[in-house]
Design a protein around this nucleic acid. Sequence first.
DNA 1: GATTTTTGATACCTAATGTATCAAAAATAT
DNA 2: ATATTTTTGATACATTAGGTATCAAAAATC
Lengths: 183, 183
Amino acid sequence: MSRQPDPRNQRTRSAVKAALVDLLASQPFDQVLVRDIVARAGIGNATFFRHYRDKAQVLEEVAQDFFEQASGAMLPALGDRHSDLGARHLCRFVDKHRVVYTALLTGGAGGQIRADFVEKTAEQAFALAADQPLRLPGRLAVIYPLSAIVAILAWWLGEVPETPTDEVAELIARLVFKPMSEY
Amino acid sequence: MSRQPDPRNQRTRSAVKAALVDLLASQPFDQVLVRDIVARAGIGNATFFRHYRDKAQVLEEVAQDFFEQASGAMLPALGDRHSDLGARHLCRFVDKHRVVYTALLTGGAGGQIRADFVEKTAEQAFALAADQPLRLPGRLAVIYPLSAIVAILAWWLGEVPETPTDEVAELIARLVFKPMSEY
DNA sequence: GATTTTTGATACCTAATGTATCAAAAATAT
DNA sequence: ATATTTTTGATACATTAGGTATCAAAAATC
């Protein structure tokens, strides 16, 4: 008889992930210690390792949680038309979860997290776009727009966070989507 | 009396940097151990720390060595006109030093190295472009094209290395420079 | 050839990761 | 409610990698 999921399980994992996000806002990922995480999460040292192999796995899970949602908001934008609408949708979504995305995209871990995101989202996007003809060669059709969009989002959240959401969407639409649709 | 530079100095530093580049081709930067580096470089452990604070500093120096040159090839391309020419120049330069750039841009360390490169080159580019009016707001004028170009180069070297050099240049010109000049 | 500097080997210290154990607490089953 | 199972936190500890200290030998400079 398979037993029910223990609430303590989920509670611990949430606490760990939240703690990492907090810490990422103020320091690079590779400077975050497991001890910092467990301290901030208010759990024991051993408990951490019962749930995660290392801190990298936590980051993976954190990123996946949020980027899965971001992908959902971004993928439609990669389609041929309505890309303006897609860009607006995406930017509004990011704005709504601004705190987390700021930590993920602009924190010290930025470089690697962004690369991971592009890589993982690219897989999904490439599979999803299998039916429609791509204008760019191979995986560049998804890697290029994803990289460009992520760069713009990171600039927005990190350097000019007061920029109106729809203005950023307009930038993305004109710099990324329009050129691709004209290629 | 300032003494001449000791040949052993330069020899050690070169060996260390070459060793790191070798290792980066097959594993992520944060998985490379200082011990691996000294072993591959054929030097003693203490000698390493006499020259570098940590492995991050080695990476910095390696990246700077090569990216300084790449910047030189890339910066003119960020100017208003002759961008097609600039893109070709850049791609040919990267092609000439293909082995190193492949290790740097597509190795496991990719994400962070690329981010660092964009960040550092952006500073130079932003200073250099101070006189000419920028079409994009703030630092985005340099961050965006740099990120996009680096993404395309990484795709080229890592996934479709047989693509003709000038074809990649054409992609960059049409996807990145043209849209910016029209903005 | 004498002097200075760098080097490699070895040993060692430290900090951080990761594991083992066990009694207490929390969830579940009866 | 009470018994059982599972998770937890504390402590202690093993391991690994970073980093330092020392010193005789080798290499460069004078």
